[in-house]
Design a protein around this nucleic acid. Sequence first.
DNA 1: GAGAAGGCTTAAAACGATTCAAAACTCGGG
DNA 2: CCCGAGTTTTGAATCGTTTTAAGCCTTCTC
Lengths: 348, 348
Amino acid sequence: MSTTTRGRADRRPSITDVAKRAGVSVGTVSNVLNRPDQVSEATRDRVLLAIEELQFVRNASARQLRAGTIQTIGAIVLDIANPFFTEVARGVEDRLAADEYTLMLSSSDEDPEREARYLRLFEEHGVQGVMVTPSAGSLDALLALRDRGIDVVLLDTTSPVDDISSVAVDDVRGGALAIEHLIGLGHTRIAFINGPLTIKQCHDRRAGVLEALATAGLDPADALVEITIGSLNADGGEAGIDELFARDGDRPTALFCVNDLTALGALRALRAHGVAIPAEMAVVGYDDVVFASMLTVPLTSVRQPTHQLGWTAADLLLRQRSEGASFQHQRVQFQPELVVRGSSDPSA
Amino acid sequence: MSTTTRGRADRRPSITDVAKRAGVSVGTVSNVLNRPDQVSEATRDRVLLAIEELQFVRNASARQLRAGTIQTIGAIVLDIANPFFTEVARGVEDRLAADEYTLMLSSSDEDPEREARYLRLFEEHGVQGVMVTPSAGSLDALLALRDRGIDVVLLDTTSPVDDISSVAVDDVRGGALAIEHLIGLGHTRIAFINGPLTIKQCHDRRAGVLEALATAGLDPADALVEITIGSLNADGGEAGIDELFARDGDRPTALFCVNDLTALGALRALRAHGVAIPAEMAVVGYDDVVFASMLTVPLTSVRQPTHQLGWTAADLLLRQRSEGASFQHQRVQFQPELVVRGSSDPSA
DNA sequence: GAGAAGGCTTAAAACGATTCAAAACTCGGG
DNA sequence: CCCGAGTTTTGAATCGTTTTAAGCCTTCTC
């Protein structure tokens, strides 16, 4: 039953096993794998045959240990279940593929601890760069990472420092767009379901909200009802509405949600409460995700160039690597766009 | 400016650097890292200080090379942008976290080649197991993988062989549920937008469709209009409808889409064509994703236990690892459930 | 037919962590 | 003051690959 190959137990075959079987040295096997044209055809065939017979698969750890690094970059987004981020990730992947980099994608779920854990995991695995949508004050960790030679690009957030690049959409403007729109429709009491201000997007969109109110001469104390939720998804939105309805005081006539997933949950809860949209409550979301236009009441939303966002971030990261010291850090900022639909404007 | 540490250039510090700095041997540093209680407190503190000063981060490659393996499992799903799969992935993660495994998640985009590439990547990286939603006849590759010592569990598909476990939902039944429902509403000419039959889910749901037609005494040649699309997402659904409308012959009065994302696209296209739903066309989707109930016309859909699916698959994989040879392979199958809404039934 | 020039192949030295047998301590008791 | 039993610490071997200098063949030139 047993072949000429002596019992290698069930260890996975190494380059040494292949070399033995093919009757060559390990160096030659390595050459076949990495510089096939430097090996004579006869030898090459013999080695390839042995590889085939042994079902040899390279050991990435050993490769990487020797080579020092590997063509991989890591990305951490806030919520992988959010279509906004999967579209961004697709953009990242498309750019990376062109340079034969692979992507390790993780979701921090807005939890700084999870973010830190993945960051460390990435570093231990020797990624060359990371793209992060920071969930909280993780800037120091990112700066340290950068100092240890791992390129960093911030994703969907504007860099607070000059020596880290970022690609973002103008969230202040986006928040303002939403509120200007609602004010334009005559609303003077607006609810705002937002996440923790430690999340840059939440912070900035809120700044835009306040800015728009100020421009219109409205006092936030009267005009704005802020509700903070823990997770920026449908469940969060539902919880936000429940809290709003539990509060005393004048009911707002309009609602701005920090993203579409949240708006989806809010709409669900509003329906449960029997609120007519937009008649009794005008609703605006953010991201213009794929299903926004298809909802019971089509959702007015702030659109962002998702694919381009990811693509550009990856491009910046790769260029940073290839250009080295001469690379100029930059803050790329795209502009958002308001898409008006029936959830805010009955005439739309 | 320079400290006592001699120029380590900008190489990332190794355990040796830490050892030198702390004035101990590398073995001791390793002990501090892995068996801290075997090291005296004084030494431990000295080493920890050095680690801190040097900003030392373990090299996962070296660790893994020596240890032979690492607590990681890989998962490949058909489409990471599909909420169905992100919910499944969440279930996987939850189970893995309990045993301190990490997850590498990738999307094959229904492309067998991409799937093979990721499978190899996972293997090279030494994952202990993989969970795969196969996109096509990749069974041989998976069997080979299993023979090379990597545990395999099929995700959202029933295993065709006895020695690989699987966790799935009864797609034949699900397909039948959808069609029985439509037939019950009086439809006798039904369109079916489906993906390639090499994808097991597509194949099985179709089997259920045919089964339900047969039971009702309908001839598929008359009653069924099949449309095959390339990608199971909203764009695919839109393309499917365009193709349907380009065809001659009686227009079907009902539509079954292989998943909700596809149905979303189909609904969008139907709206563009000015088709009333459900009056002129009853629509049923599959997966009951988060937004299904919130669409303009709430979508009738076949619901699956997503989180449980992922959790169970991960559980099976981990048990397979820990129980070794005594493990009994099994095919877990959950039952789907039809959720009737307005897109098919005006009275709903 | 000697020497040079190439083309292939080899052997050995890394890479950074873990492990384990052995050495070096410590401490109490005789 | 030595012995022995712990307790800590050490140093070398090891994991699987890549890389490099050196060596061996051929073949070619004069």
